[in-house]
């Protein structure tokens, strides 16, 4: 710790554009105990000079809420995918190695293109089919507090992409939709009226790139910053899809 108390050192993987080669640069900023990775990157941004004394372009990265609820700022920090706003410097081994979230195309430096998450949500129809966004003078059917607490866990998924980047089955090499969208199928299928479209959602994950591509590595659940029980959801969906397959077979 004493060595760390003088400065905060970073080793950052940079990339100027999609498809261009990546390279490393190192930075150091004065130590302060209350830094997280974002606030430290902001200091680098104010004066982007490497430890070799080279003035370089400010590091590009994504952030917004800085309260671990928007999902923007996820990156690979010392080899672990996680939001950078809640990555406190004092809890990290130095030099702190920052890399873009793997499995997603790099836009520039630490900024990646996560549009595949959105595509996944569209594919599984992760919404409730309502008649329209107007008042029908009725709410939804009741939901027991026990069901609510199970559902709430999944509704906190912020599409940060950590689970996807940790999943060995997900990536440019495969069509696997990944745990985040699967968990939303679990959530929507549990809603009292969302159930009406359960079969469609299940069919969407029964084909290529669907639930059977899960290799059960369990990495997703280990890295989820919101502790969402992703593997539990996948297990439940395994049963739901099996039942659906039987129904499909016998016209149930």
């Amino acid at each position: 710790m004493p060595a760390n108390r003088m400065s905060i050192r970073f080793k950052i993987r940079r990339q100027d554009a999609p498809g261009s080669p990546s390279y490393w640069q190192e930075f150091a900023i004065p130590y302060a105990p209350d830094h997280n990775v974002i606030s430290a990157l902001m200091v680098v941004q104010n004066n982007p000079v490497t430890t070799d004394g080279q003035r370089v372009a400010p590091v590009v990265w994504d952030r917004n809420c800085m309260e671990e609820v928007c999902g923007s700022c996820a990156m690979l920090i010392n080899g672990v995918p996680r939001p950078s706003c809640s990555a406190l410097i004092d809890s990290l081994t130095q030099p702190i190695v920052l890399e873009p979230l793997p499995k997603f195309p790099v836009v520039r430096d630490l900024l990646v293109d996560r549009s595949r998450i959105d595509e996944g949500l569209r594919r599984v129809r992760a919404w409730i089919e309502i008649d329209g966004a107007w008042d029908t003078h009725e709410g939804a059917p009741r939901i027991s507090p026990i069901e609510w607490s199970a559902n709430y866990l999944y509704s906190r998924c912020m599409s940060c992409g950590c689970c996807l980047s940790a999943c060995p089955q997900f990536g440019p090499h495969s069509a696997f939709i990944g745990p985040a969208a699967l968990a939303q199928v679990r959530l929507m299928n549990a809603h009292p009226t969302g159930r009406y479209d359960q079969a469609e959602r299940l069919h969407a994950i029964m084909g290529d790139g669907g639930i059977s591509d899960c290799g059960n590595a369990q990495n997703c659940v280990r890295v989820c910053p919101k502790a969402i029980p992703l593997t539990t959801a996948i297990g439940e969906l395994g049963r739901q899809t099996t039942v659906q397959a039987v129904k499909d077979l016998f016209g149930g």
């Binding site: 008042d135 709410g139 939804a140 939901i143 507090p145 609510w148 009226t193 969302g194």
Partner: peptide
């Protein structure tokens, strides 16, 4: 508005 949100599936506490 609350009831519309509820129909959208918002996980309001119960």
């Amino acid at each position: 508005l609350i009831h519309t949100f509820e129909r959208m599936g918002v996980t309001f506490s119960r």
